[in-house]
Design a protein around this nucleic acid. Structure first.
Lengths: 172, 172
DNA sequence: GAGATATGTCAACAACGCTGACGTAAATAA
DNA sequence: TTATTTACGTCAGCGTTGTTGACATATCTC
């Protein structure tokens, strides 16, 4: 019986804009999905004595060979002291190499070692498997919807920066 | 010039299943989106001397009045010691009330106070605003795609549990 | 009454954020 | 050339939030 009665869809008429019903579904699904999404790599990272912070550093250095410390700090939004703690371990354990900059010798250009690349790829594939499984339920247009949704959740100031980082150097 | 040449879409023919290209786009967008999504409430929580752990507890108690400790532990997947630390503060500061169970007097039934509800709602609306903004770019079908995608990212064992929690007690 | 269950608590520790201060080398401006 | 700024490293200390292990108490169930 569709539209038998014109139901008061958005609560009382007196309710103003601030009375919009919270999007509990998307808020909570985001929480649970992210929780499980990051939990996959944890088991493997444990074997190496690494944590999630190491994963993030390794991931972005693998993706952007030659990344500088300043650029990495900008991506991760943490302090250099926090970064240095985990980066030092990744270098000591030979997962990342730090080379002096060529044009500017104050910079450190970060690169993964073959061992570092293997681990980064292993972790990325784990997460890709979960993503692929989730996408099989959906049609091809849906993937673009998801991509655009996630991108739009990002702070507007950062969005183009992230776009370049994620989709490559191609000017968007 | 679509399909002018049948391009080798998935790399070399010798490549097996394990050679699937990692979904770097969705991996990284998920990271950045979640980072910004949880950052909104931080500013407000700071004013109350609360952190993200407090937020999560307050949120689920607000959503599920009468929640027990055991149920909350199951949702958050942390230890009771970790939970107790933040829950104690929320109770001391009168954002949550703990009432003795009626049928089972060992249980603690958790409820938000009016003050607790106000804060929970305020934070939920903040996050809702970001979500609403992201959804405006998309058509109505897209929201369902996003919902189903997030749900499918969750561990299969937990999925129906989360569905009940998120979409209400209605048997799905 | 015995044992299982729901919760609370003490103590110690680990990961990973933070601030603040200080040092060094290299690039750049004056 | 000297002065300043920039890029990075490091020491020290602290806060939040997760962990393990052990133990106490009240209550329910058998």
């Amino acid at each position: 019986m569709p539209d038998a009665i014109p139901v008061l869809r958005s609560a009382k008429p007196g309710a103003e804009a601030s009375a919009e019903r919270p999007a509990y579904d998307l808020i909570e699904l985001f929480f649970f999905a992210y929780r499980d999404f990051v939990s996959d790599p944890d088991r493997i990272l444990d074997e190496y004595g690494f944590g999630r912070a190491h994963h993030r550093v390794l991931h972005f250095v693998d993706r952007q060979p030659g990344l500088t410390i300043a650029e990495l700090l900008d991506i991760l939004r943490i302090t250099k002291q926090s970064l240095n703690r985990v980066l030092k371990e990744l270098i000591e354990k030979r997962f990342i190499e730090s080379r002096m900059g060529t044009s500017d010798r104050r910079q450190r250009l970060l690169h993964v070692t073959p061992q570092g690349h293997d681990l980064a790829l292993k972790l990325a594939k784990l997460q890709t498997r979960r993503i692929a499984r989730a996408l099989t339920d959906l049609d091809s247009a849906a993937k673009e919807s998801v991509t655009r949704y996630l991108l739009s959740l990002i702070d507007p100031d950062d969005r183009s920066h992230v776009e370049r980082l994620v989709f490559g150097s191609a000017k968007v």
